[in-house]
Design a protein around this nucleic acid. Sequence first.
DNA 1: CCAATTAATGTTACTGGTAACATTTCTTGG
DNA 2: CCAAGAAATGTTACCAGTAACATTAATTGG
Lengths: 339, 339
Amino acid sequence: MKKYTIRDVAKAAGVSHMTVSRVLNNNPRVRANTREKVQKAITEMGYEPNAMARAFVTKKSQLIGLVVSDISNPFYAEISRGIEDKAFDLGYSVIFCSSDENTHRTEACVKNLLRTGVDGMIFTSVHLKEPAAEKLIADGFPVVLVNRKLRNPNCHYVTCNNFQGSYDATEHLINLGYKKIGIISGYSHLSTGLDRLKGYKKALEDHGIPQRPEYIIETSFSADGGFEAAKELLVLKDRPEAIMGGNDYIALGVMDAAEALGLSIPEDFALTGFDNTDFAARSRTKLTTVSQKIYEMGSIAVQIIVDTIDRKNLDYAHKVVLNPNLIIRESCGYQLHKK
Amino acid sequence: MKKYTIRDVAKAAGVSHMTVSRVLNNNPRVRANTREKVQKAITEMGYEPNAMARAFVTKKSQLIGLVVSDISNPFYAEISRGIEDKAFDLGYSVIFCSSDENTHRTEACVKNLLRTGVDGMIFTSVHLKEPAAEKLIADGFPVVLVNRKLRNPNCHYVTCNNFQGSYDATEHLINLGYKKIGIISGYSHLSTGLDRLKGYKKALEDHGIPQRPEYIIETSFSADGGFEAAKELLVLKDRPEAIMGGNDYIALGVMDAAEALGLSIPEDFALTGFDNTDFAARSRTKLTTVSQKIYEMGSIAVQIIVDTIDRKNLDYAHKVVLNPNLIIRESCGYQLHKK
DNA sequence: CCAATTAATGTTACTGGTAACATTTCTTGG
DNA sequence: CCAAGAAATGTTACCAGTAACATTAATTGG
């Protein structure tokens, strides 16, 4: 269990410690038989380089900071898994922090990660305006945004085409014959909330269906938010025939509200979600939703951040927008709806 | 954005760098007005200590390694959140690795974490025999097991009383009048699988109900596992009246199988789960299950590991066993069952 | 009021790697 | 076969902190 240093190895192999360092770093300027000699000493002694010393001197920790809103939220957990796997492949480890969607806590996370010495940070849940992230970017610190974007478009990000996904879902409802379509949208100070709302509005517009302000409610991306909003929407005199959930959690909350109010889905109203999370296929009514490549987003984000870390001075921004996919299940009915 | 060192601060404050170091470490051997002078320079210059240098010289990274079977599994994600929050409070950051329940990958995770220089490791999903973890423990490296335990009891762990939880659930079924009770258990090379199986058997025994080997199937803690096993159990000539899922995922798979076979829960058979994960209350049939304090387990594990890191030579093992709680919903029916 | 003691501050060395430059050893071609 | 250049190896310094000891300043009691 004794910890050896390169100098110990050097002595054992009868060379200087620099030669050992060169062998360790695959420097070609080492003769083959010297390399073998050193390699032998290394394996015999069970030498392991001291990561801390190396990080200290090279100013590279091989650590990526990950700021999620809540790691216990399966959506973010899945992004995290995508991030972890790719990071592992590229020789990085990842430290995660939950920000709880809270600017204050986000700042604490960033400070903490900076203190820990991460080489770059990935944010999964920025607000359109997020001072902590923006400051990092301004300072030239490697940052990649996943899932949600900042207002400022001049940064690396990978997202789903939320506009398109929402547009498609809305159009699907319209094609089924629904006209009175409400939306319980995520807050529009979040890019995901905003883009999905825009997609919804554009689809209505393109099909000549007027917007009705009372059919649009913004809330948090949570079952509770969906539940409360649905209770408002479903008691309207002129109740919507279809409700779009800003994500699957909101849709879940809508289902809870429907149950509480004695309404059935899709008989009394249609429902859509967004994300195609695991439980969407397993809920009481199987949910029609928009799937996005969650795991892949994480994986791509790592690719980008490592790129950025390695050749620091990228003068362009990586922008990756993945295509979503409408998954049709039973929550909108299958028949054309009565006019 | 310039990076200052303690020597820069020292020069600015007109003291030696050691005095700055003392101020930084709250060493009482600094006169009040010297301390102020230094403090002032620190804030004015925006000095931040270099974590890498500090970690290097103190041999302490303030990093905890976390090995979960899969971060995208909500159960582990919630443990992780408990771990993260407590670690944050105690000044640690956490690096996570997903092992996929795979000995090989577990070894890779451990190696990776060791290389990164973590001060200790938390394992959430060891097998009863897990060479990588056992070696660490043998070497005196700080390790805490959460959720699952090793066969070797001489290590720190925090788990739920799985035996008791399973016993309670079984007894609940018995009290409802069920006698033909099957179990789709997690693999018994995992402590959770084994203990829950034991609890089931003991409850049957205590109530004088003979075990029927064909009613016991072991599988992975997954919906797929539950689905496949349920298909076997539910086509038995003498079908069980009740099935206990080794965890909520297995129970979910059982629900899928029931649907596929045209059976209703609880009319055709009763069903229980374990863990009280989020979706247990939201599944088609609301699931009677055993809740455990998932978040708390993580939190306690951090407490223990930090303890262990700080006063390395603990000569006793922390063993924390939390009590589970039976959550009765609708999947077992509410009436006493016909004999 | 000054010697003895204690408190405050400073100096030097050290951690385990890598960078930069110096030196030695090997090639190669005239 | 040897000088010149290239390749291999070695030396020294450095990173930004902390530990251990040295020195200086302040306090205290006879």
